[in-house]
Design a protein around this nucleic acid. Structure first.
Length: 564
DNA sequence: ACGTGATGACTCC
DNA sequence: TGGAGTCCCTCACG
């Protein structure tokens, strides 16, 4: 409901009005007045409306209370001025300026006055009071209008102080009025759109402490990692290498506050540098080689779950991160998290389309994809297409044939050719059939793209042979695997070891807690575990592209680095 | 019927 | 004693 403006309810003083009309009246006798009377309190308002002489005077001049021009029309029982309408009616009132009253007009005026009195007595006072409330605090209205469901949620589902992010002092309770847990948002202050300074959360205004971390990131990004030699060593050697990778206490660190939802590892070979995104929109950067407190810092470039992150393969000084509403690029050389793309639709995943990382394919949760070109900032440029998925979780571009990309979601896993995308009704090049429940992830093998591994809620890992893309793709192996991560853990994603074409890493519910490495044949090659250090489930894992390093993130924001 | 997302008790240090 | 960390196999809703 469009509530009337506070000012519009005050009728102008007749004398003043008349003066204005004399000045502004047109030869036809119509006046186009723009009156902006000062706001008036509700109580005063009633007093102003009730005295009849004033009403009559106003009415005689063709004005209704509220500064609105009366439209001449047939009188009727509902012939009252409409406090809800906007000011447009005043403009098209036409030649209604009345100086001499006909019988009809007198009757009409009587109606108007009676009705005005009636409304002033009943509704206007109420409205004015509500207006006042709006002017001071919107909250009373919000609670009135709030859906009962939300109110219920608040009462039925009681949340602990810690979960409400309420400081023990209770200070933040004042700052968190109307948006308690709206959309699961964990954080109170909303991150604005547009570029954000790369300043850690705990040190707003004092970036001195992060200087080391960011300088390190910048420095290691200048050195081109030479190791694209993705060796395909024999399985025995590979297993030995895996066995040599161990976890020690100093290589465990909590880098974000809440559950890890995505991770990225910097390609540098000199320094181990990891980024983790959590459920609340935080991104933690950790220089694993720096053992001091300054080795890790938290930034907050998003409002919501950071679902996908990649260092740019072209320029690892850029860290791209995706949240529900935006794709950002953290550029350490500029010390900003820049906006690349924003959408009203919920975003789920992205991948780079070319090696130069200038274009990215972004999937929307609801089944659309968008091609985002970073060279045209601030626009959702390029192609948008509906590929008919109900829910899309991950997207991955074929490592060799970049025209192919694969999406995985609740419906299925499909491979599309980007050259033949249409706005609607896209048919996939290949469908990877067999999933009976929703699919959490699907990724091409890193070197050739000849394999795809999927994680499905039907408690199976599947490996497909995608060496030739036909309408149906053969399942190579199926692995029984408990993927029921449930309520508190991020869903498992199976990721290939970039160094080993045919092996992938996946978290596990098995006890003792472990991270598993499988061969594409379905053979379990290794389980990373440590009875002393690893006591939780690592849902999200990344493997370094050249070094023997594996990082696992758990649902408490803690990262575990296995290295040799 | 199925997919999705929400959250609090308990243990350990 | 209290805060940090772990993790479930539920339940409402669309």
């Amino acid at each position: 409901m469009a509530l009337p403006q506070a000012g519009a309810l005050q009728p102008p003083e007749p004398s003043q009005l008349t003066r204005q009309r004399m000045q502004e009246s047109t030869p036809e006798g119509t006046a186009e007045l723009r009156l902006t009377p000062a706001p008036v309190a509700g109580r005063q308002l009633r007093v102003l409306l009730t005295p009849l002489p004033q009403e009559r005077l106003l009415a005689l001049e063709g004005w209704a209370p509220g500064g609105k021009k009366l439209r001449p029309r047939e009188p009727g029982p509902a012939d009252v001025w409409d406090a809800d309408s906007d000011g447009s009616e005043a403009e098209d009132a036409g030649a209604g300026g009345c100086s001499q009253l006909s019988v009809y007009e007198k009757k009409r005026l009587k109606n108007i006055i009676d009705n005005a009195k009636f409304f002033a007595a009943l509704k206007l006072y109420e409205s004015a009071a509500r207006l006042q409330q709006i002017a001071t605090r919107r909250q009373s209205l919000v609670t009135k209008r709030a859906k009962p469901k939300k109110a219920e949620d608040e009462t039925v589902r009681r949340r602990s102080m810690r979960l409400q992010r309420v400081e023990p002092s209770g200070v933040s309770g004042l700052e968190a009025p109307a948006q308690p847990a709206a959309a699961g948002n964990v954080r109170q202050p909303q991150v604005p759109a547009g570029p954000l300074p790369m300043v850690p959360e705990d040190q707003k205004g004092n970036s001195k402490l992060t200087e080391d971390l960011l300088t390190t990131w910048m420095r290691i990004s200048e050195v081109k990692a030479n190791g694209t030699e993705k060796c395909l060593c024999d399985m025995k050697r590979y297993q030995d290498m895996l066995s040599s990778m161990v976890l020690s206490k100093e290589n465990i660190r909590k880098v974000v506050k809440y559950r890890v939802c995505s991770m990225a590892i910097h390609p540098s070979e000199s320094i181990l540098f990891v980024a983790a995104g959590d459920k609340s929109g935080q991104i933690g950067l950790w220089n694993v080689d720096c053992k001091s407190e300054e080795g890790a810092h938290v930034f907050v470039p998003h409002n919501d779950l950071v679902s996908c992150m990649h260092f740019s393969p072209f320029n690892p000084a850029h860290l791209l991160s995706l949240s529900n509403d935006s794709l950002r690029c953290g550029d350490v050389t500029q010390a900003v998290f820049d906006d690349i793309y924003r959408s009203g639709e919920k975003l789920s995943s992205f991948d780079f389309l070319e090696d130069n990382a200038s274009t990215a394919i972004v999937t929307h949760w609801g089944g659309n994809i968008t091609i985002v070109d970073r060279r045209t900032p601030g626009t959702s440029s390029g192609l948008s297409a509906d590929i008919g998925f109900k829910r899309m979780r991950t997207v991955h571009v074929h490592p060799v044939n970049k025209q192919y990309f694969m999406t995985a979601g609740s419906q299925d896993v499909c491979i599309y050719d980007i050259r033949y995308l249409k706005f609607h009704r896209n048919t996939p090049v290949s469908s990877l059939k067999g999933h009976t429940k929703s699919v959490a992830s699907a990724f091409f093998s890193p070197v050739t793209g000849n394999r795809v591994v999927t994680v499905c809620a039907d408690d199976k890992l599947r490996v497909y042979d995608t060496s030739s893309l036909s309408a149906t793709v053969e399942v190579l192996s199926t692995i029984r695997h408990n993927n029921n991560t449930g309520r508190w853990l991020s869903r498992f994603q199976a990721v290939w070891d970039p160094k080993q074409e045919d092996c992938f890493v996946v978290g596990s519910m098995a006890r003792p807690r472990q991270i598993e490495v499988f061969q594409d044949t379905g053979k379990l090659l290794h389980s990373f575990s440590n009875l002393n250090c690893l006591s939780s489930v690592c849902s999200i894992n990344v493997v370094h592209p050249t070094k023997n390093v594996l990082v696992g993130g758990n649902s408490s924001g803690r990262l575990h680095v296995f290295k040799d």
